[in-house]
Design a protein around this nucleic acid. Structure first.
Lengths: 247, 247
DNA sequence: GCGCTTCATGCCATATTGTGGAACGCCGTG
DNA sequence: CACGGCGTTCCACAATATGGCATGAAGCGC
């Protein structure tokens, strides 16, 4: 359904650029003015958008969006289970900690974050997405999916983002085996340059991967000699979240 | 745009009932199966929905929503301005405090909450909506809207939710005058039974109502003799939020 | 094990619905 | 005062979503 898909795209764009005008959005999407205009009015009538109070030609996200909460955040699930262990991990390492979940189409989405206090630190906003095949959290999740799902996903040539990105499905599969063996995934310059991340999966009772916790730090502070140690504490944290989540 | 409006309704219904099946949604909306099905698939492809991992015929909200959610909060810089005063108000009364904003369609939406520590307390989740004409926060906002907007809204018979709901537009208007005079609004059993709330508006520089702060408590703890006192502290808090928001 | 019901999913002719080019009206500027 | 930029409205056309029906899979009782 074309109009629905487009409306959601426009909604996301408004969230990114708010408060934004019709004209700015038409340029962004290359669509006819009237089409964008109509979409904005519809979204407004549904309460998902609203006109800015000061400048009524500018649009921003309406409060109605708050009524829609992802399953991953509901009640006492993951989100609540993860908070404390994440804070402890941050305290132990003084590096930024992320919780990410896989989404419908081959992305990891940042769901929660606990910041470190270094002046130089990595930054991913809540809601940011990154490709499954090129991030530590993505690998942590992929490594625990049924082979059939990985096969379906890892086909052809995967998109590259730099020298280090694994673009060959075969190579990806051997990397995933390594991740399973040692329990954690490592990403160094595969997606964002200058960033290093170490991630471990949070699993369901049945071994289904629900999310991944990661520590993320700038190149400049990464000491290869400490990798095993970091991998261990991240894995322990993920295990603790899993345990808390199950009970 | 019919399909867009309907898709958003369905999205909200999924959020409310997740994880939910196609059949349940068709009953809920009285729409043809194929229409609902198609909508779900479209929303899924956009990442806003996903199939439940255990039971793939059940749908739940996808993580993509998170890309938009934070914008709904930061959109109103109110959120930041209100936090501290709300916490102080909670500390003073040890009752639950809410911040709500009006949305496009005659509802108030809960935007933030600070909890008390009583075992028995009222509960409204962030994102919950309630009707403008039957809540304290709604009255606080309505009382400061231009008369034309109130007239447009308060027409015919308003929906009732119990004995106490004001359903007559005329009666509502006199109540709103009282709210303006004393500065705060009171709701006792108008919408939810057993709940009492006292709210005051947060205004713009131009006197336009942006939101309302409310203290909300169970019947059992409400002492009518303390109403004036409670009204005063809530009004003071609202005034403080207004002041912080302006500078 | 076999028919029966229930439910999700796929198909396709139809007309309803959204499309987008063009025109309008408002406002600030040269 | 004319011009250009911008948001908004209009309307004939056809692309698009619709929903009744058919299919297929899964659960249940006999």
């Amino acid at each position: 359904m074309k109009s629905v898909t487009r409306s959601l795209r426009i909604l996301e764009a408004v969230a990114q650029h708010q408060p934004v005008t019709v004209g700015e959005l038409t340029k962004l999407f290359g669509l006819p003015k009237s089409t964008v205009q109509r979409t904005l009015v519809t979204l407004n009538e549904a309460g998902w958008l609203r006109a800015n109070r000061k400048d009524t030609t500018r649009w921003e996200i309406g409060a109605r969006v708050l009524a829609v909460r992802p399953a991953a955040l509901q009640g006492s699930s993951l989100f609540a289970a993860a908070r404390e262990p994440m804070i402890r991990l941050r305290d132990a390492l003084n590096e930024t900690i992320h919780l990410s979940v896989p989404d419908a189409l081959h992305s990891m989405v940042v769901v929660d974050r606990v910041d470190c206090d270094h002046a130089v630190r990595t930054f991913h906003a809540i809601g940011d997405t990154s490709p499954l095949h090129a991030t530590a959290t993505g690998h942590a999740v992929l490594a625990h999916l049924p082979k059939s799902e990985v096969d379906e996903f890892a086909t052809g040539t995967l998109e590259g983002y730099g020298e280090e990105t694994i673009t060959d499905p075969k190579e990806l599969r051997t990397e995933l085996r390594r991740v399973r063996e040692r329990g954690y995934a490592v990403n160094h310059n595969q997606y964002l340059q200058g960033v290093c991340a170490i991630a471990a999966p949070v699993l369901d009772g049945d071994g289904v991967p629900l999310a991944a916790v990661a520590v993320s730090l700038p190149d400049s502070r990464f000491e290869p000699g400490r990798l095993a140690e970091l991998g261990q504490v991240v894995t322990d944290t993920a295990a603790e979240i899993t345990a808390r989540h199950l009970r």
